[in-house]
Nucleic acid binder design. Structure first.
Lengths: 225, 225, 225, 225
DNA sequence: GATGAATGAGAGTTCATTCAT
DNA sequence: CATGAATGAACTCTCATTCAT
């Protein structure tokens, strides 16, 4: 009985959180209306305030949960006994997949922040997630798989930023994630020590491409006029 | 006289745009108040509506202008007679510098797209800016300086995303831009052909091609101004 | 068993009343929250509504009780065998003492009357309390101790109003009650017959009269408790 | 033209103030609705906020104005060349007259205060008004018209409190102010030096009154049972 | 009888937009 | 063209009251 009661409360809190996540994703921080969240959670407006002090707290809880789960998923997605490079590949895949699904929420929370008065502040849960990247980078360096010339945070920023922007483009093109994207992103990085693994040489570019650029520029021109 | 009149109008429009840019940068899209913009432009609230239909249009104009000028600056920052790699370095430096200065505006506009109902929409001016990166990438490939096995847009996304996220980190740390950051970002990329197979090394791009690109960029420039 | 049950109910009602009195005193009519009252009475919010129809009724009960007890205290504070003047002195002292302690409650209830739509309505219990003053005034006149050329209600208003306002000032100055205040208030009144015409001085009130009053007051007392 | 504009603004501010005064008087601080005030001032809700920062500021302005004007009226009501006693009489008359008219407003503002967190705080404008009483008291003492045994503030409290409470009773009885009330209030005070003005002796009370009190007590009793 | 989660009407306040001057 | 006072819809949040358990 008491259990049923407790379960109902948790179900309601969950419903509110889910509704808030959806609305936040669709409408952004300022666009999200408490009335709409309540409506979707099938709850009276006042009820939301029984679970969360105010709008800010609710949306913060949404963001917290989102990144916390993203972090857990990331950790789960990484194989244990493998190279750092392979882990990075797995993480990249997981990250792109997640970002394509919940792109709007990432946009809102990882970037614009929840507050106008602290524009550049990063939420703790976001930091936690980014640390997963750091950890792999560190492991790659420790195992002399990755070069150690660049500070870890720069390596991470470069890799993480690439993924995020790539996700953006994929979303923009309403294009799903195909494996080649992950491969290419990974392949574009010089994270590795310059060992003599010359066998991984890519094929050279076809020289015929010069027409392509000329055409592209022509198209830009015509659109501008 | 008619000229003076026209100049006054343009000065007013400019003042409004400048004020709006500042306010948008400080307060974000929803935080920006029309009254505050008018106050800073030294203009009555109603006057703003003589120049822009509504808040959305004004802020869109701000964003348009910002990216247009960013594009012009980018083109100007690139040396003519040099390798694509060097151009990329110059562009990276310019980009980071600009993003650190106007970080908030970039956050707001390049991402949130100013509309909640069209989350992934990219503004035309932003696309234009990104094309500068594309052009260099293309040139690098044409000149067989860069590898050609990755689609250009992926190379660009990876590079552009890296820069943007790096800028974010630098702003977060309230850290200025030092040259090493640019070097490390550039250095982390496998854009280049692997020199080991120097027998397949192409001649540098034909001067004719190069000139064509430069001319095209010059035309873009003139149209944008 | 039925007795225990009944006692528990009464204890609960009392606890609610006490809590409500405290909250009303601290926060005023509109500031008082039903939730806070319930919390202090160690009772669920809904429970309050088992004892009182609504907020208004509860607060009215609080006020009723306060004045009823004030009346009882006043009657108890008056000595039986003494002059009206001395009784007035005793009552003044008691009144000031009480008002200094429960000032806020008096402010709220004796004045605002708890209803906005009936601004000047006086609660019956307040009237009862004021009658104690009236009774002493009447006795003073009957015993020819006080002058009789002013209507009793005016004498009482003047005396009562003085005390109330004086209490207010004392509270304002966070000043305790010292005896001189009572003396001065008493002293400032011309209630007494001018002794100069001592030939007209009446005999002190007949014992019969006096006893009658005492008995009547005793009856009031017993009915109030 | 500019004048017309300014006049319109002032007229509007006045209209809002008048409306707010009425609503405050009718409904009290917490009962007063901004929407109702706006409606009565024939103005949109938002307009009120052009003139007053918020509800609290508006109501404070109402109270300020009320007491400021009361003070001005009081000063105007006092004759210059006369005794302090006579001035007191004039002031008492003016005070009672005003309080009967605007009783509710006085209740609200002079007593309950505008704030729940500072229950006993007296508004500056109220203090100013009370000072008019003090001034006359002081003058009476200086001219050796009044006794100097009691601190001025006590004399003032006693007198002022009497008037206020008397006004309350008059309002309660929906009774207008007749001159005798003022006379009796004044007459009940021992403010004067005990000079040999034995000619002002009041007639003695009729001894027959003792039946009255018995009857009164009987009535109390019957009502209580 | 007792509970306390749920309700929802209604409050104060903001601000993009309009329009008489 | 320029003004800025006026508007009022829309927002977040509160809290007396209810009712299923």
């Amino acid at each position: 009985m008491a259990d049923t009661q407790r379960q109902r409360l948790e179900a309601r809190e969950e419903a509110i959180l889910v509704a808030a996540t959806a609305v936040l994703g669709e409408s952004g921080v300022d666009g999200a209306r408490m009335a709409e969240i309540a409506r979707r959670a099938d709850v009276a407006e006042g009820t939301v305030y029984l679970y969360y002090k105010n709008k800010h707290d609710l949306l913060e809880a949404v963001v917290d949960r989102f990144w916390r789960e993203l972090t857990l998923g990331a950790i789960a997605a990484i194989s244990d006994n493998t190279t750092a490079t392979e882990q990075l590949r797995e993480l990249a895949h997981y990250h792109l997949q997640s970002l394509i699904t919940d792109f709007k929420l990432v946009e809102i929370t990882s970037r614009a922040g929840m507050r106008h008065d602290e524009p550049g502040r990063q939420l703790p849960q976001v930091r936690e997630y980014v640390r997963v990247f750091d950890a792999i980078m560190q492991r790659g360096i420790n195992q002399q798989e990755f070069q150690a010339n660049t500070p870890i945070w720069q390596m991470r920023d470069v890799f993480y930023g690439s993924l995020e922007y790539s996700a953006r483009t994929l979303v923009l093109r309403a294009q799903g994630l195909d494996k080649s994207v992950v491969e290419n992103v990974i392949g574009l990085f010089n994270l590795h020590r310059v060992d003599a693994d010359s066998d991984k040489q890519p094929p050279s570019a076809s020289i015929a491409d010069h027409d392509t650029i000329i055409e592209a520029l022509a198209r830009i021109e015509s659109k501008l006029s």
